[in-house]
Write a protein that binds this DNA or RNA. Structure first.
Lengths: 208, 208, 208, 208
DNA sequence: CATGAATGAGGGTTCATTCAT
DNA sequence: AATGAATGAACCCTCATTCAT
C-alpha cells in the first residue's frame, strides 16, 4: 500500500476516534495527514468508503487471537481463559483508537455496509470466546453459564475501561497525556480483575 | 416547563440516540418536534445547550437508586447487590435512549461543560456501587476485589447489551421492532447473569 | 411572489440562456441576483428545482395564444394562420431567453421531471397549431399536408432565426448589442416569410 | 490518425451530444473510450481543444453536398432542390449526433474559436443553398423569396425534427430505441414534406 | 509514448444561527 | 413570545489539468 494511503488511514483513525465520524471533516483528515483534500476521494472514493477501508484494514486485529490460542492444545480451560484475556486486553489496548471507533462511533452509522462489517466483527468475537467456554464445559471444568452474556461481560468490561479513560486517569491519579504510565498501571489490574471474575464465574456451581 | 420545550427535548433525545449529536441537525429536531426551526435557539440558546439541557433533564434517572437501597437497611449485602442490579437494569432499559447518548455519544463531545456533566454521572454511579461493596466487605461477606473494575464489569455488561441490540435480536431470534418481546426475554436473563457473576466474584476467596 | 424569488428567477433565466444549465453555477446566479448563495436552496430546494420553477413560471407564455385566436371566430383560415404567426413570433421574441432555454438547453437535461415539462410545452404548441390547420382543411381552404411537419417548419424556422442571432446580425449588417434595431428589422421579415411560406404550402394542391 | 485518437473523438461526440459539453467530464470521455484520463490532455491539449478537433474532424460532412449537386448540370432547379433536400436530410440523419452538438450545444460555448467554427459551418450551408435558389431565379423558375429565411426554414425544419426525437417517437407510435424503424418512417416523410413546402414556396408568385 | 498520482479551484448543498417583525 | 427570512461558513465531492516517471 502506498505511503499516502496509509497515512490518510492513520489520520482518519485518530480523528474518527477523537471526534467521531460526523464530527470529523475530510478537511480535518487531509490537514492532519498533510495531503491534498482531493486525495481522500481519489484514494477511497468517499468519506464513508474511507471508513470502510479503515475497518477492513484494522479489523484483522482480533482475528489472530483464536489461532494463537488454538496452537496451545496443552492448556487447561482456565489457562485458555487467562490467555484469552491477556491477548484480548493487549490487542484492544494496542488498537485502542480503532476499538473506540468500533464501539462508540460505528453503532450510529446508517450505512448498511458499515453495519454489516460491524456485526461481523462482533459476531466473530462472540464465536471465538464461545468455543473456549464450550470446550471447558465439555471437560466438566466450567459450570453452566449464559454464554452470550458472559462474553458481554468480558468485552463490556474492557470497553467500559477504554471508553472512560478520563475517569480512570482521575481514579488512579495519573496526570493526563502520560499514556504510558496509564497503560502500565491499568492493564495488569484489568487482566487480573477479568481473570478473577471469570475464574469465579465459570467454576462456581450455580445450582448448589 | 412548557409543553413545547419538553417536546423538543424528547425529539432531541430520540434523534441524538439514533444518529448522534453531529449526525442530527437542528432542522431534524425541529421537524421531528413539529416546531419552528428558530424555536430551538430561542428556547435553548444553541444546539449544544440543548444537549446540556437534555442531560440535566434526564440525569436524575439513576439518582434515586441509592436512596431506594438505603431504605432497606435490613437487607444482606448480597441482597443489596441483587436489588442494585434489578434497579440499574430496569432504570437503564427504561431510559435506553438516554443511556445510549451518555455511553456512546457524549464521550466524543468536546465541550468542557458536557464532559463535566458526563464525568459527574459516571462518578456518581461509581460511588453508589462502591458504598454497597465496601459495606459487604466490612461485614466480611465480600472478598477483596478491585472496586472500580468490578463496577466497570457491571456497567460494561449492561452497556454492552444495550449497545449491541441488533446482535442480541439475532442471537435470540427476535424479529426486529418487537421491542417488548426483546425486553421481556433479555432483562431477566441479564439480571440473572449479573447476579450470578457478582455472587461468585464477590464471595470467592481469591487468596486461597 | 416575493421580490427576491422573482429576482433569482430572472437571473437564472438570463444565465441559463447564455451559458446553459451546466455552464451556470448557483454562485453565478446568486451573484447576478445579488442574493446570498444559500437563498437558492432556501427558495427552490436545488438548482434543478430552480430550473423547474423557472419553466413553470414562464411556460404560460404561449398558452394564451390559442385563446386569443379563438376569440376571432370571424377570421378566415388564412387570416388565422397569419394571426397565429404574428402572435407566435411576437411571443417568442418577447421571451427569447426562455425560448432559447427550452429549445437548446432543456433537451439535454436528464431529469425526468424536466423532460416531462418540456414534452408538455411542445405537445401543446403542436396541438394549438394543428387545430387551426384542421379547421382550414374542413373548410376546403387548405390542402392535404403533413400536419406535424408543417408545425415543425413553423417552429423550426423561428427557432433557427432566434438561435442564430449572430449570423443574422452579420447578414443584416447590424452592430452587435443593438437589439432593438435587430428586432425591428427581423421580426417583420420573419412574419412575412412565414406567412408566404404557409400560404403557398397550405393552398397548393399537392395532388395535381 | 491513431486509433486511440479516433476512439476518443467518437466517445466525445456521443457524450457531448447526449449530455452537452459542460455536462460531460473528461473522466466520462476517458471512461467511455477506455483510455487513460491523462490521454485526453496529452492528445488534444484540453477539453475545449478536443471539441475543436471534433468539429474540424466532422465539419466536412456537409461540404460534399454542393459538389455532388454541381456534377449534375443537367438538372432543373426544382430537381436540384429535391436533390439538395435528399442529400441534406440523409447527411444530417447520418451525422445526427454531431448535428445535435452543432445546433444545441455549440451556441452556448463562449470560446471565440468555437464560435468562429460554428459560424463558418452555418455560413457555408447558407451559401450552398443560396446558390441553387439564385440559379433558379435567374432561370425564371423560382419566384422572389427571402433567401436567408428560406434557408432557415429548410435547416430549421430538419433541426426541429432531429431535436424533438422523443416527441416524434410518440407521434408515430414507435417504441423507443428502435431507431432504425424511426429513421425508416420519418426520413421519407420529412423529405416529401420539405420538397412540397419548397416547391410551393419557390414557385408561388407572391405578387399576384 | 504513456500513465498513475496528485492538485487547486470550484461545484451544489446543508449547517447552526440571527434578525426584523 | 414566536417565527419566516436570511446568512456566512462549512460541508463532501468532482472538476480539468499537470507532472514525475
Amino acid at each position: 500500500m502506498s505511503d499516502k494511503r496509509a497515512h490518510i488511514l492513520d489520520s482518519a483513525e485518530i480523528l474518527f476516534a477523537e471526534k467521531g465520524f460526523d464530527g470529523t471533516s475530510v478537511r480535518d483528515i487531509a490537514g492532519h495527514a498533510n495531503v491534498n483534500l482531493a486525495m481522500i476521494s481519489y484514494y477511497f472514493g468517499s468519506k464513508e468508503k474511507l471508513l470502510a477501508s479503515l475497518i477492513e484494514h484494522r479489523a484483522g486485529y482480533t482475528r489472530g487471537i483464536i489461532e494463537e490460542l488454538a496452537k496451545d492444545e496443552s492448556l487447561t480451560p482456565f489457562e485458555k481463559i487467562d490467555k484469552l484475556i491477556d491477548l484480548y486486553v493487549d490487542k484492544i489496548f494496542n488498537n485502542s483508537r480503532f476499538h473506540c471507533i468500533v464501539t462508540t462511533h460505528l453503532p450510529t452509522m446508517q450505512s448498511d455496509e458499515i453495519k454489516g462489517m460491524m456485526a461481523d466483527i462482533k459476531f466473530m468475537n462472540l464465536e471465538q470466546i464461545k468455543k473456549i467456554i464450550i470446550d471447558g464445559q465439555k471437560k466438566k471444568v466450567f459450570g453452566k453459564v449464559d454464554m452470550e452474556l458472559t462474553v458481554a461481560s468480558i468485552m463490556g468490561t474492557i470497553t467500559q475501561v477504554t471508553s472512560s479513560k478520563a475517569l480512570y486517569y482521575r481514579i488512579f491519579n495519573i496526570e493526563k497525556s502520560n499514556e504510558e504510565l496509564y497503560n502500565k498501571k491499568l492493564i495488569p489490574k484489568l487482566k487480573t480483575h477479568l481473570k478473577q471474575l471469570l475464574r469465579a464465574h465459570l467454576s462456581f456451581n450455580h445450582h448448589e
